[in-house]
Design a protein around this nucleic acid. Structure first.
Lengths: 223, 223
DNA sequence: GATTTTTCTGACCGAATGATCAAGTTTTTT
DNA sequence: AAAAAACTTGATCATTCGGTCAGAAAAATC
């Protein structure tokens, strides 16, 4: 976006073919980068391979993104923005069982539908988050503080057992994202290439049941 | 071990200074490799950095381990062997609540005491386990089948709720190992360099409580 | 249609990396 | 103490990687 703005700032065509094509090629590059970063990590990923998957010469890739670092940052930013609003239903007025069930279900569905960005993010965290800068300690931390306060409100209102909200969130993250991040292990152990949509639903149901009962809540009736 | 056998096969000194020093230097190299692989992944790790941390010239490292791949394999094998016997208490005759509580507690303690190998393993899995060969689909799969059968026995005996044993194991793995693999995220979100032993105990207690209650079990009284 | 701007690309470069090797030194064996 | 085996190491090599550059091609602007 920033690059696009800068380069096309003086083009007075009001978002014509030029800008559309630039946006589309940048999207193609970012998609290719996403998959390469997921498979090989930042260090293992090569700009040559990203260019190959985007079907452009490497020099052309460096025309759109100056450095590999810049490309990685954009991929990470995209992932993070996607994740920021996944728990909007966790509010003080919501029913805890319903809200948590929805959150867990949504997270499992995300693990099924978009496992690749999840892996890029997980890889970054495992290696100590060297490229995420202060994001974890500022924005994500504030997000968690907000949600934790909501859950503490539920507990104070006697709606659920007294548990540590933040570690509950960590447990939900772990239990759901494991189906994206560690998919290869799960596939191998279960002896199947990939889980069916039905199996993902069963996973969501079981994780929800265990977490909710663990919090002293009654899981909402399944449809 | 294989390298050591081969090189020292004809030395008839019955495990003297020579072999002791070889074992010790190999251990030092493996420890250095473990930390470098954990921080940078297989691709990002450099033999030069491993040699530096082991305080030997790079050429000498290649005397003990021919290739980086061989070094990585030994690190992975070591981790895997460490993990094989962590759930020995999960047997058909055991009390489910006690056995699962012990397993979860042991896993959290392992996450605290040995996070580095956990990260090497996690990194390998995230990238599709390209260096683990058939291990996941054979040995680990058989291990999970065995434990799943035990848990199904518990369920059949009416000792706990009817849940899918394998996905329960995945959930336990995820919820415990997240404290090793994603430590940087947890630290940043909680705003503390690292968790205290007391906090790890609280984590183990809460994860145990949620999982056990989720399985319709009563957590054993804490000491 | 000429000029300017943007996009594209093959060729290339310096740095880093995994691995090798030959020439040493030390230890063990005889 | 001579010979053999094991160990150490600086120097070096081929390859790969991220990134650059000059100039061609295409598109937009005048």
């Amino acid at each position: 976006m920033a690059v696009s703005d800068q380069v096309n700032a003086d083009v007075g065509n009001g978002g014509g073919v030029r800008q559309r094509s630039r946006a589309s090629i940048e999207r193609r590059i970012l998609e290719a980068a996403e998959s390469v970063f997921a498979e090989a990590g930042f260090n293992g990923a090569t700009t040559a391979e990203i260019a190959r998957r985007a079907a452009i010469p490497k020099a052309n890739l460096h025309y759109y993104f100056n450095t590999k670092e810049e490309l990685y940052q954009q991929v990470l930013t995209g992932i993070v923005n996607t994740w920021l609003h996944t728990a909007d239903e966790i509010t003080i007025d919501a029913d805890p069982a319903q809200a948590l069930a929805h959150y867990i279900t949504a997270k499992v569905e995300l693990a099924r539908e978009r496992p690749i960005p999840s892996r890029v993010f997980a890889n970054e965290i495992i290696h100590g988050a060297p490229h995420l800068g202060k994001y974890l300690g500022s924005e994500l931390r504030a997000w968690v503080d907000t949600k934790a306060k909501v859950i503490r409100g539920w507990i104070a209102a006697g709606k659920m057992r007294d548990i540590d909200p933040k570690h509950l969130l960590f447990m939900i993250w772990a239990s759901t994202q494991t189906y994206a991040d560690f998919a290869s292990q799960i596939s191998a152990v279960l002896g199947k290439e990939q889980l069916s949509p039905q199996e993902y639903k069963a996973v969501a149901r079981q994780v929800t049941e265990i977490i909710l009962r663990g919090c002293g809540l009654t899981p909402p009736t399944q449809i």
